[in-house]
Design a protein around this nucleic acid. Structure first.
Lengths: 148, 148
DNA sequence: CTGTTTGCAAAAACTTTGCACGTCG
DNA sequence: CGACGTGCAAAGTTTTTGCAAACAG
């Protein structure tokens, strides 16, 4: 049950009130350890004691993104997903053919983030982003088949 | 008027027909040299001779993404944008506070793409992705103001 | 108490689909 | 010609909004 406290503390710091709904959303997202759609967050929060309205889930996720506690990304074919910056930098390799998502540890990418910072003064938020490409399986398949 | 030919050739290779609409969409996206929403592509194609239906724009953009000729990404607060892989690798630094987008040349990132390839056999498609963070202006502002 | 936050339901925004007609090759 | 692609309009999705009631601090 990792650092929900941290998240809630930063919410409070920002002058936001801590409500059961926000606890729920933060908790679900932080514990999942993965990226989730708003719909999924909604489903999981509803599984517990408090039922959190979908609109509220959206509002809370927006809030988290704005505060830099979570990131929003587009995976595969059009699903918007959210994730906390919890587990350090992560890259999602999204295959544009089969939609599979490989999670890659990005601790080796500190160089990238530093470069960005030094060049532009731009501080990367939750270091979490997606890369589009073709996975090894699809690459193999592609060689044989070549229909539209 | 850069390499539209290349794009069209690859469309044909893939067994797709070359229609005026596809020419238009490809041309607009390739020339713009930036990322655009489907709406924007639609608006610009309509400015020229042929008016391309919005649904067709979506269908064509999907096609380009599927063939790896363009990439789809989520910039700032929820707008899905498309871009060709034309100008070599590019990173978009998206400020989560003001929404500003800085374009960063990513030629120094070959290391990243090679790492991905070697570790997972995953070939990054259009090398074009977004990084979320806080730009230098907002970082300065943030220090003084601290309202919600 | 008082300004935030929520739930609800409706609206807006965005994207996809079915189908008849048009067109590329 | 014949299969593929397009326009149109309608249906789906996903996300946002307005407002009264509920609530944190």
């Amino acid at each position: 049950m990792p650092h929900c406290h941290t998240f809630l503390a930063r919410l409070r710091e920002a002058g936001c009130r801590i409500t059961p709904q926000r606890r729920q959303v933060v908790s679900v997202l932080a514990h999942s350890g993965r990226h989730m759609t708003a719909e999924e967050v909604h489903r999981e929060t509803s599984a517990s004691d408090h039922i959190v309205n979908l609109a509220t889930v959206y509002r809370t996720l927006d809030l988290l993104v704005e505060l830099g506690l979570a990131s929003r990304a587009l995976l595969g074919s059009g699903s918007t997903v959210y994730a906390t910056g919890e587990h350090g930098p992560h890259v999602h390799l999204v295959c544009r053919l089969c939609g599979k998502v490989i999670e890659m540890d990005a601790s080796k990418l500190e160089g990238l983030f530093n470069l960005v910072k030094d060049s532009y003064g731009f501080v990367c938020g939750p270091r979490h982003f997606g890369l589009s490409g073709v996975c090894i399986d699809c690459a193999n398949t592609e060689e044989k088949v070549d229909s539209k």
